[in-house]
Simulated scan of single mutants.
Amino acid sequence: MKRALIWLAATAALTGCKIHEAEDFDPTREGFYIFREANRCLGETAADATRVLLFDLYYSASEEEREVVHNRYFYSSRIVISDDACHIIDGTSDLIIYTGGQPLSAEGAVWRYAYSSQSCLESEMPTISCRKHETGPDTYDLRLPDGNQQWSVTPFYCNQPQPDGPTRYWCELRINGTGNLSERVYSPDFGTVAYETLEPLKYNSEKRLQFQRGKLKLTATIDHEEVEVDARYVDDDQVVILYGSHGKTYWY
């Protein structure tokens, strides 16, 4: 056994290969790190898009209906509406929505939005517009100039009576999209990550930064080599990562 270990060490020194301890070796870990960064960015984008779509319900409602919508979706928020810029304020967070004085359902309406803490030009803000359908739910086109991200979003407004209390309301999104993510917060240096939805993502507004269903294809570059990751959401907080010829289910 000792002779075999010496031989392995010598082989590694000659070939430049890294020997992993068996209990520490995880061939899918790099793919999971790439997924985790993409999931964080996509989850934040979905959360913001949900707020904007729910705000359209408020903005389009009559004065009497607005109180109902506010209590359902913005109970802890303060909403300020001016001629053009509208604010959803939660503590120190201020989401500004530029409506152009039109609801999203209006023909040709395009909304832009950003947080007051962000320093960005109008051309750098996400935009959202509505594609109305005579049959079936409307869909919304979301564009993020950063990374040329393009989403098609279908919202569903859900409610469920509680056995011992009031009805619970939330919003679900079905998302198809492509684009590039350039942010990095984890240790592996994988540069820009490109993503594509192979199966629509299902997002629940009550579960921030989580998707309950769907499949992503992620492409990144590590050590000048392009790698691909397939990530399938299988349950709350779980994802199946396929990386190279290996697969593993993670909690995230």
Rank of each mutant, 00 (worst) to 15 (best):
L5N: 12
L8V: 07
A9D: 13
A12G: 14
I19K: 06
E21W: 07
F25E: 05
R29F: 14
F35D: 11
N39L: 09
C41H: 11
D48K: 08
L54N: 01
A61C: 06
N71F: 02
R72V: 05
R72S: 06
Y75A: 13
Y75K: 13
Y75S: 14
S76G: 04
S77P: 02
I79S: 07
I89W: 13
G91Q: 12
I96D: 04
Q102P: 02
L104V: 03
E107V: 03
R112M: 07
Y113C: 01
A114L: 08
S123C: 09
M125V: 01
M125W: 09
R131G: 01
D138K: 06
R143I: 01
D146K: 10
N148T: 05
Q149Y: 00
W151E: 00
V153G: 02
P155Y: 14
Y157E: 09
C158G: 02
N159A: 00
P161Y: 01
L173P: 03
N176C: 05
Y186C: 02
D189K: 10
T192Q: 13
V193N: 06
Y195M: 11
E196G: 04
E206S: 12
K207M: 15
L216K: 10
L216G: 10
K217L: 15
K217M: 14
D237Q: 11
D237C: 08
I241H: 01
L242I: 02
S245F: 01
Y250Q: 01
W251Y: 08
Y252Q: 02
